[in-house]
């Protein structure tokens, strides 16, 4: 800066530093709040059952590996298999959800057609109904169509996800100028080609974000899988945790339970860290000039 030492720029820099300090303070405070419960989870996963019954501790104890071994090898609750199941379901759901919601949103954003308003209102109306209400009818449908012996009833409804659609629509409204689409049309590219090769890369931040969210939601989903999956080898992680909670009271191992919860969260955390880097990468590649 050419005006290095004037009092004005000194004041401006001081204000900047002060602002930065306040911001860091707020961030650290919020991080502490968030980390605290997670930290407690790790501490509890490192304690034995008898120790946990006795009250609270704030420092990790020595039972971590024992609990890990017990949970991983538990005969009645096959957590490695459960994690695999959850991963498959969550991955397929998140990919399908994100792609089709983006497609639908593009359709409603870029085109004018007669029933546009009606279609939009319909999709929004669907969003408001609580899931528990639709569940009974949906389960009856699945049993009628013999869909309960596979992952399909969990993955397919992901295609119709009004909330993700809504986000994509709003995102496109704020960041997708029609000029691009017109330019692509003038250049002679077909509609699908335009969507897949030009529009999708521009939506990278939104896609990455929604993939993470739908992955997590699918991973943590307990309500519907519990109602739909009867085969033991298809059970996902939340169902197994619920089984643990409802298990024999006298053989209840709290240390194992906390370890299960920790194991249940870890893969999601890894996926999140992996995908969040691509948000930053996607931003620098996706901005439109001019």
């Amino acid at each position: 800066m050419k005006h290095g030492n004037t009092s004005e720029s000194r004041r401006a820099r001081a204000m900047l530093t002060a602002t930065r300090a306040v911001v860091y303070a707020i961030l650290i405070f919020l991080s502490a709040l968030c980390l605290f419960s997670f930290y407690l989870l790790i501490v509890n996963a490192s304690r034995s059952n008898a120790d946990l019954q006795g009250g609270f501790r704030f420092l990790p104890q020595g039972n971590f590996l024992t609990n890990l071994r017990n949970s991983w090898n538990d005969a009645s609750i096959n957590i490695p298999r459960g994690m695999l199941n959850s991963f498959v379901v969550a991955l397929c759901t998140s990919v399908l959800t994100t792609y089709f919601s983006a497609l639908t949103a593009y359709g409603l954003h870029a085109y004018e057609f007669r029933l546009k308003r009606a279609a939009f209102t319909f999709i929004m109306a669907v969003m408001v109904i609580p899931k528990q209400v639709c569940a009974a009818g949906f389960v009856q449908l699945c049993y009628k169509f013999h869909l309960t012996t596979s992952y399909l009833p969990l993955i397919l409804p992901g295609i119709a996800a009004p909330i993700v659609f809504f986000y994509m629509k709003q995102y496109m409204e704020s960041t997708l100028p029609m000029e691009i689409i017109d330019a692509a049309r003038v250049d002679g590219s077909g509609e699908f080609y335009t969507f897949n090769r030009i529009i999708l890369p521009m939506l990278k931040p939104a896609l990455a974000v929604q993939m993470i969210f739908s992955f997590v939601e699918s991973w943590n989903n307990y309500f519907l899988p519990a109602l739909l999956l009867d085969r033991a080898e298809l059970k996902t992680v939340p169902i197994m945790i619920a089984q643990l909670r409802a298990a024999d009271y006298s053989k209840f191992d709290l240390g194992k339970m906390y370890m299960f919860i920790l194991l249940a969260i870890l893969p999601v955390l890894v996926v999140y860290i992996f995908l969040s880097k691509s948000i930053i990468k996607g931003v620098t590649a996706g901005s439109v000039k001019g």
Partner: peptide, 15 residues
């Protein structure tokens, strides 16, 4: 910071 503030969302609401 971004990883940390997102953490509570990963823990199941019931847990």
């Amino acid at each position: 910071f971004k990883a940390v503030i997102y953490l509570p969302n990963l823990i199941m609401a019931s847990a």
